[in-house]
Simulated scan of single mutants.
Amino acid sequence: MKLSTDVIHSMEAPRPLIGPIALTPDEGAILAATKLRQEELFHESDGAQRNGELALALMTSLLARAAIPEVRLKYFEDPTYRTGRIKGSYRQLFERNKTVGDDIFRHPNFLQHLRYFLFGAELPDDIIEAFSGKALSFGHVGPSDASELGTLSRDMTRKYHLAVHIGPDGVAEEFYKLALDCGIYQGHALAIRKRVASIR
């Protein structure tokens, strides 16, 4: 199942959605039975297969009702939204490795993207509140605003020791996702990411 461009472009000027999306009762039940972290599936081939079917069922439902914010779909589908040296979107990386169609959603490596679709950036709630409050107070975030947000993100990363477990690049990616969720232009969101990633 490909994420339809009709779905991606169906909303005009969407309001930013920060944090979790709303689920139907059926989706909530599927989610409750789903393991969302790949490491939980190590050495469980049968469990991984069942989990893949649950992830597919959840994605099928979410896409059918256009429940995933447009920018989160773009993060997965649009090559210009992907960071890193290898060119191509996250979907294209799956396809280059011969994982196509519904099998993408079944793949354990897809779980990191499913978490973003469902919950947004994986950062502490107080940091999300501080960043999003500052970003939304600007209205339209320009280059100087993005620089200020980058400094704020870097300072919070240091203060709360966010890079201890996943490194500066991992934390930077989560701030990048959060910036996108706040409706910040992708180029400015990337500048915020670079500021956080520069921590050494």
Rank of each mutant, 00 (worst) to 15 (best):
K2R: 11
K2N: 11
K2C: 00
L3F: 15
S4T: 12
S4Y: 15
S4F: 13
I8W: 11
E12Y: 07
A13H: 10
A13V: 02
P16G: 00
G19M: 09
I21F: 14
A22K: 08
L23H: 04
D26W: 05
D26S: 13
G28M: 06
G28D: 04
A29Q: 11
I30M: 05
L31D: 07
A32T: 02
A33Q: 14
L36V: 11
E39L: 05
E40P: 00
S45Q: 12
A48N: 11
A48Y: 07
R50W: 10
G52N: 04
G52Y: 03
E53K: 09
E53G: 04
L54I: 09
L56K: 06
L56N: 06
M59A: 08
T60D: 14
L62K: 01
L63N: 02
L63Q: 07
A66S: 14
A66I: 12
A67Q: 00
P69E: 04
R72F: 07
F76Y: 14
E77T: 13
D78K: 04
P79L: 14
T80N: 13
Y81F: 15
Y81T: 00
R85Y: 12
I86T: 14
I86P: 05
K87R: 15
S89Y: 09
S89N: 13
R91T: 06
R91P: 04
R96W: 02
K98D: 15
V100K: 15
D102E: 15
D102K: 15
D103K: 11
I104S: 03
R106I: 09
H107Q: 07
P108W: 13
N109C: 13
F110V: 09
L111T: 05
L111P: 02
L111R: 04
Q112E: 13
H113N: 09
L114S: 06
Y116H: 06
L118G: 03
L118M: 10
L123V: 05
L123Q: 01
P124H: 03
D126Y: 02
D126N: 10
D126W: 02
A130S: 10
F131S: 00
S132D: 01
G133N: 11
G133Q: 10
G133I: 03
K134W: 07
L136M: 14
S137F: 05
F138V: 02
H140P: 05
H140V: 15
V141K: 01
G142W: 13
G142S: 15
P143A: 08
A146W: 03
S147G: 12
E148S: 12
G150C: 03
T151M: 14
L152F: 12
S153R: 01
R154K: 11
R158G: 14
Y160T: 01
H161N: 14
H165T: 07
H165Q: 11
H165G: 09
G170A: 01
G170D: 03
A172E: 02
A172G: 07
E173N: 13
E174T: 04
F175Q: 01
L178V: 00
L178R: 01
L180H: 01
D181S: 07
D181K: 06
Y185G: 07
G187V: 06
H188I: 05
H188S: 08
A189E: 01
L190Q: 11
L190T: 11
A191K: 00
R193Y: 04
R193E: 06
K194D: 15
K194F: 07
K194E: 15
R195T: 15
A197G: 07
I199H: 04
I199A: 01
